[in-house]
Design a protein around this nucleic acid. Structure first.
Lengths: 342, 342
DNA sequence: CGTGTTCGTGGAATCGATTCCATGGAATCG
DNA sequence: CGATTCCATGGAATCGATTCCACGAACACG
């Protein structure tokens, strides 16, 4: 334990620990001689303050927590990246937790983050307001929801307005002649799952398309359920001619099984995905997507959180979504006769 | 500041803080009555120990740091995921840092992690052994390198033996008739960049293929340089008929520009990428890859780190790599006459 | 020239938990 | 039955930094 402490620095600089601390924290009540002597001693000893001790006394840790449902989901990886960069530029370090789409793991991480006394938490929540999410509110720990929200819990949030993008998509598909659109939905236990489903239902009704409830498959935002969804939808007596997947991972699963079944995306069946991912444009055919800005979402989430930490009560922000048409949904529908049936 | 401390718990339970601490840390020197009373008080007050104070006194923080060069690189996102899960199962939380392929940011994060007194650090290093990497060693902070290493710095590591996979790839491409293979290399400032380049050079020589140095483009492991590399290689007087990209992001860049140029992957030009990513199999045509196990890498890195923390000196581990042939490199080479030239 | 500010500084208390040490009561042994 | 061991327990020191408070020197003003 040859740990260098503030006392060692103080001794070498020939001043007290109190003065050393003042110099290090930029307190103006210090003489220039003290400043240079301390600076020299710090350099000489390669001193790094113990963040734990500092946090214990000053009750701020200069760190925030970010809890995402799944780091491997490119959308959340991007989010982690932007949040982390934005936080860093404000002097905060980000502790990343991965709930792995499991409520118990979410609770486990929230507990840990609370224990470590992070200054605030950004979370894309899953489940209802029970468990540790509730504890956050009770302890008045600065919290911001990102991407998703939780009913009955009133904290600032940054979310996407999925209505516009989904309405555009349905209209676009209808214009190509599609009347039966299959929807691979997210879980109704998440706010994004519910919102997008509601938006889809409304858009389909408005466009006068089939509202057959068989056309909706409820997945879990993971790749596997995208495959399962396609499988189920294609086995209908009157299968859909276009598909909309409520997130990128389920779209990946859908693409995988469509390949396997030998169905041509964009020709045999149209496909649109929610969430824009760099690679989707590289697929052949390129995938149409409902795009929304991760960068804005991450940046704004950090902004809001810092405001909450500062004691303010910022308004929630809703970001727009927008359809980006690519080859996977460009061809007009084929006459029924020439379509294969699975 | 309605923070619940161990004293509150002690008071409610009718015992001292010392006893409460013993109960909470599972010290056997406690009576069963004390245990039940403390447990009840903890529950009643919803007490969470202050991890900072605990770490300050006990000099362990039960946390490890993971520093990756880029979270948005799916390979490192996967790595983050497995490391985090493996660490969690051993009772450690992971603090994720993102160097963003920048040495200054790497140093910034290492400093922060050192300040926070993490129990150990897993890092995929960039740059030479200077800066904060050096400080890690000097302070004898348990460190493990993952994926990459740093010359002259002797810490346990988990890396991939790229030789086998690259040799298989070159042999495979040669068998299809390719004689000029373009190589989009990683930066020579990273160990993986150097290793893979050396392996490629050796394999090409062994197979008796063209060793034209113009066939090598030096990129930076990011998508943009993949595009730039393809661009440069195709402008040669005698352009390559097959390409090998040294990581997944550069492969993504390569695919993007090949699409843009209207060149058919697997037909006009063969393409193989290092790093297996779930989506690569979904591309049309599916991408041939040199695959290595991220799961193993992450799990073993955590294993090694825990051993180092425990004071042992484990051996470094080298994992195998292997060629997975898919459609992007399956067709025999076309006769030169029928190939378009760019 | 004395009184009153201003200003840099050091001593000491403090944050919340862990842990050494001493204590007193119960259990065990000769 | 007295002496010894054992064991649960509480008091107090401790980890490393921050910050309140008081002190003394320097300076300005009347």
């Amino acid at each position: 334990m040859a740990e260098v402490t503030i006392k060692d620095v103080a001794a070498l600089a020939g001043v007290s620990a109190a003065t050393t601390s003042r110099v290090l924290s930029g307190n103006p009540a210090t003489s220039s001689q003290a400043r240079v002597k301390v600076a020299a001693a710090v350099k000489e000893l390669d001193y790094r303050p113990n963040a734990q001790a500092r946090a214990l006394r000053s009750t701020r840790s200069d760190s925030i927590g970010l809890l995402v449902p799944d780091v491997r989901n490119p959308f959340f990886a991007d989010l982690a990246h932007t949040v982390e960069q934005a936080a860093l530029s404000q002097g905060y370090v980000t502790l990343l937790g991965n709930a792995n789409e499991k409520k118990v793991q979410q609770d486990r991480y929230l507990d840990t983050l609370i224990s470590r006394r992070v200054d605030g938490i950004i979370v894309a929540p899953l489940g209802d307001g029970g468990g540790s999410i509730h504890a956050l509110i009770e302890r008045e720990i600065p919290t911001v929801f990102v991407d998703r929200t939780v009913d009955g819990i009133d904290v600032p949030s940054v979310t996407t307005d999925s209505k516009v993008g989904i309405r555009q998509t349905v209209k676009h598909l209808a214009a190509l002649g599609h009347t039966r659109i299959g929807y691979i939905s997210g879980p109704q236990a998440t706010s994004t799952g519910r919102d997008r489903f509601a938006a889809f239902t409304a858009a389909v009704a408005d466009a006068g398309l089939s509202q057959d409830s068989d056309l909706v498959y409820f997945g879990d935002f993971q790749a596997g359920s995208g495959s399962a969804g396609v499988h189920a939808l294609l086995q209908l007596d009157d299968p859909p001619t276009a598909l909309l997947a409520a997130d990128s991972l389920m779209a990946v699963g859908a693409i995988a099984i469509l390949h396997k079944l030998g169905l041509g995306i964009g020709t045999d069946i149209a496909l649109v995905a929610f969430d824009d991912i760099e690679w989707f444009a590289l697929l052949n055919p390129a995938l149409s997507v409902i795009s929304h800005s991760v960068e804005d979402m991450g940046r704004i989430a950090v902004d809001l959180l810092l405001q909450v930490i500062a004691g303010e009560s910022p308004q929630s922000v809703v970001l727009p979504s927008e359809l980006v048409i690519r080859a996977s949904s460009m061809s007009p529908i084929l006459p029924a006769a020439s379509r294969r049936k699975n």
